[in-house]
Design a protein around this nucleic acid. Structure first.
Length: 433
RNA sequence: UCCUCAGUAGCUCAAUUGGCAGAGCAUCCGGCUGUUAACCGGAGGGUUGCUGGUUCGAGUCCAGCCUGAGGAGCCA
């Protein structure tokens, strides 16, 4: 095994060369005097052809009994061949088993969701799951590049928090030293505002936790959210930024992960249409559209999943819905100066029924009004003294939003459920593996 | 928390009006020199989610429970 170590992802550039590939046996077929091993190594899949003449009696017999997911090192010569899946294959000359595998539970046939989720640590080895996780990687990388390239500073916010940021019923409590209770963050929002007052334009990017007893295709109890916040910024600035971010992510994935989208059989035509400008409609206009479509919708409420789908169906790209009633939004949203019952808020709805991917707006920057809101929401003032400081010491208009990574990945991959967009999903009834 | 649906071999499913527990895949054995979820032949593999009830007889009907899925509310 002295041939150059090669990753399968670069095999097309190694035609004619003697290579060594280290990976796992994905699948095996045999036709008597010839074995076909599909080997994967995390960078791709390659078919290895073994003939008795080339590898000898013993190795040939051994290869006939290798179980799915056996780890192995294969040496051979790369050849272009139209009969091989992907167009290239390795003429095997030697085979070394690193670790045996018997009765691998995930076979090439169908399995149920519960069965696969119980074996998520193995399921991620499948071609489809690998493709999804690669798209997720690309989305995250695109997000970081987008903000870093525009001068935003990454300033992460704490995961242990002392109290609620938005409400109290959806927080996970955790025992903290000396009989105290901490809560897992459900948004970096408040700290993000403080960071923006220090650094101008910032973003935080990390896991967030919501103890909502939601059981739908778009909910996880642990999910990743990126939250930019800008000092001296308005609602329109936030919408502009969200639009540019979504466009940047989609075009990056289309450019860098076309192969993965192919594995997922994702129709890319709807993604190609995701270009600025996005349509922008007010909550009032959205409510009118829903009524025109015959949906019973009462002004003042938030949109449900079916409402979001109905709205998104009217557009061929993401749509920004702005100025929701203040009653539907968090206490820190700034009221619309032209209509006190509305907030300077925005949701961006993804097309094709994927719903809300972005939520944000302009923040309340007036000290007295903020104090009033904290009281109106029955929040303990002491816990928010530091937050009130931001309005005591040089307050400025500021705005930002949060974007859920898993919903974006589910949309781009065309998935039925967000549970496949994260390596180990955490849901209402699932904490393992 | 509420509504709907499901649970049979390791996996995915079938089983007619309540009447002998079945198939494909996986596993093991054999065959095949270009397979593409290979194919062909053979073998092993069952507390029908749990508890109780109705019945000559229950996978099937009834009650309760458990587990899961889809949806609602809420949210990214």
């Amino acid at each position: 095994m002295d041939a150059t170590r090669t990753y399968i992802g670069e095999i097309a550039r190694r035609v004619g060369e003697r290579v060594t590939v280290r990976g796992w046996l994905h699948r095996r077929r045999s036709s008597g005097r010839i074995h076909f091993l599909t080997v994967r190594d995390g960078t791709g899949f390659i078919q290895v052809v073994l003939s008795k003449a080339a590898v000898g009696e013993d190795t040939f017999a051994q290869a006939d009994h290798l179980g799915q997911e056996t780890s192995l090192i294969v040496e051979g010569t790369v050849r272009e061949d139209a009969r091989a899946p992907g167009g290239y294959e390795i003429d095997g000359a030697g085979l070394e088993v690193v670790g045996a595998s018997h009765d691998y539970p995930i076979t090439p046939k169908e399995h149920g969701v519960d069965y696969l989720l119980d074996r998520r640590h193995l399921w991620i080895r499948s071609r489809r799951q690998q493709a999804i996780l690669r798209v997720r990687h690309e989305v995250i990388d695109a997000i970081r590049d987008f903000f870093n390239g525009r001068g935003f500073i990454l300033a992460d916010t704490p995961i242990f928090t002392p109290a609620a940021c938005e409400g109290t019923s959806t927080l996970f409590p955790v025992p903290y030293f000396d009989d105290r209770t901490a809560f897992l963050t459900q948004s970096g929002q408040l700290y993000n505002e403080a960071n923006a007052m220090a650094l101008g334009r910032v973003y935080c990017f990390g896991p967030t936790f919501r103890a909502e007893k939601s059981k739908t295709r778009r909910h996880l109890t642990e999910f990743w959210m990126v939250e930019p916040e800008m000092a001296y910024a308005t609602l329109d600035d936030a919408i502009d930024l969200a639009e540019a971010l979504v466009v940047a992510i989609v075009s990056r994935v289309l450019e860098a992960r076309r192969e993965e989208l192919g594995v997922l059989e994702r129709d890319t035509a709807p993604l190609e249409r995701v270009q600025a400008p996005f349509p922008r409609i007010s909550y009032d206009e959205a409510a009118e559209m829903l009524r025109e479509r015959g949906r019973p919708f009462e002004w003042g409420g938030d949109f449900g999943g079916p409402d979001e789908t109905a709205l998104a169906e009217s557009f061929d790209r993401p749509v920004a819905v702005h100025r929701f009633p203040s009653s539907t939004k968090a206490f820190y949203m700034k009221p619309d100066p032209e209509r006190a019952d509305l907030s300077l808020s925005v949701d961006v709805l993804a097309p094709e029924g994927y719903g809300e991917i972005v939520g944000g707006g302009q923040r309340l920057d007036d000290y007295d009004l903020l104090l009033e809101r904290i009281a109106a929401h029955d929040l303990p003032r002491e816990a928010f003294e530091w937050y009130l400081d931001l309005r005591r010491y040089g307050t400025v208009p500021h705005a930002g939003f949060g974007m859920g990574v898993e919903r974006v990945v589910a949309w781009l991959c065309g998935l039925e459920h967000v549970r496949e967009t994260i390596p180990y999903p955490r849901m209402l009834y699932r904490l393992t593996p």
